[in-house]
């Protein structure tokens, strides 16, 4: 075996080494090693294990806090998105309602206008018909009057030509008598 670290201080009074000795020396040596190992575990615990674990725990907490903050931000963003989508939906609904109302109003207005126009047309038509009727009546009257004039003129001419003074007087007298009777 390589024995690199042997110290050449072996004196004559030193007992020879042993592999295994179950005696008081073993108990004393065990106590020495217990002290050594306790010291080592203590140093390792306070200089290495605990500080590194503390560092890792703090980092874990930081990361957890960051994750929590990120989740919170995400939730807020999602909430905002929902609000935005809800607003968009509301706007859409409102737009639909406005459009619908406007369409309805326009339709009503259109109906009103159509109705008014139809009534106006009807009025115009009726007026025209009335005027036409009046005109027709006037024309008929005019024709009658002209026919009467013509007839009277023709009758006058005829009388002038064929009836003497005496006959004229008799006829007038008869007519006057008829009027009186009626």
């Amino acid at each position: 075996m390589f024995q690199l670290c042997t110290i050449a201080l072996t004196g004559a009074e030193l007992p020879p080494g042993s592999i295994l000795s179950l005696d008081k020396k073993l108990l004393v040596e065990m106590l020495v090693y217990i002290i050594n190992i306790s010291l080592l575990t203590g140093v390792l615990a306070f200089l290495l294990y605990k500080p590194v674990k503390k560092f890792m725990a703090q980092r874990k907490e930081r990361i957890a806090a960051e994750i929590e903050a990120a989740q919170k931000d995400r939730e807020e963003a999602l909430e905002l998105k929902e609000q935005y989508e809800s607003l968009i939906a509301d706007i859409e609904t409102e737009r639909e309602e406005i459009l619908h109302a406007a369409y309805k109003k326009a339709m009503e207005r259109s109906d009103q206008m159509l109705f008014a126009a139809r009534r106006e047309a009807e009025n115009v038509y009726n007026r025209a018909l009335a005027e036409l009727k009046t005109e027709k009546e006037n024309m008929a009257d005019e024709m009658k009057r002209q026919m009467i004039e013509i007839a009277a003129m023709m009758a006058g001419r005829f009388v002038e030509v064929s009836v003497d003074r005496e006959t004229q007087d008799r006829l007038i007298a008869e007519a006057l008598a008829e009027w009186e009777e009626s």
């Binding site: 024995q3 670290c5 042997t6 110290i7 050449a8 201080l9 072996t10 004196g11 009074e13 030193l14 007992p15 020879p16 080494g17 042993s18 592999i19 008081k24 020396k25 004393v28 040596e29 106590l31 020495v32």
Partner: peptide, 24 residues
């Protein structure tokens, strides 16, 4: 294969504690 004693470090309850290969 024995564990060699190099020197006596101190005595504990009248028992010498040696500087052994193991202790080194």
């Amino acid at each position: 294969f024995s564990i060699k004693n190099h020197r006596v470090l101190f005595h504990l309850w009248d028992t010498p504690v040696y500087l052994t290969d193991t202790l080194i």
